[in-house]
Amino acid sequence: QEALTASVLADAPPQEQKQMLGERLFPLIQAMNPSLAGKITGMLLEIDKSELLHMLESPEFLRSKVDEAVAVLWAYQA
C-alpha cells in the first residue's frame, strides 16, 4: 500500500482527504480499541489533517490521541 503523504492528500478534495485518512487510521485504532474504533476514528477525523498524518507516522502520538478520544467519549456518555 502506497504511503499516504501530504502531497498525495493535497491532490484529493477535502472530503476525500478525510476518507483516505480514516481508511488508514481505522485499522491502527482498531488494534488498540476494537470496540470503539469506529467512534474514535470519527472523532479523530475532526482534527486537522496535518495532525492526522502525524498520527499515521507516530504510533505513540496516535495512542495518545486515541486515549484522549476515549476519555472524551466516556465523559460524554457519563
Partner: peptide, 22 residues
C-alpha cells in the same frame, strides 16, 4: 436520536460524511 448522533462513526469502505453540515 440526538444522543446517539455524536460522535459520527467511521466505517471502512463507507463514504465519510463526518460532521460537515451539507
Amino acid at each position: 436520536s440526538s444522543h446517539a448522533s455524536w460522535p459520527p462513526e467511521f466505517q471502512p469502505g463507507v463514504p465519510w460524511k463526518g460532521i460537515q453540515n451539507i
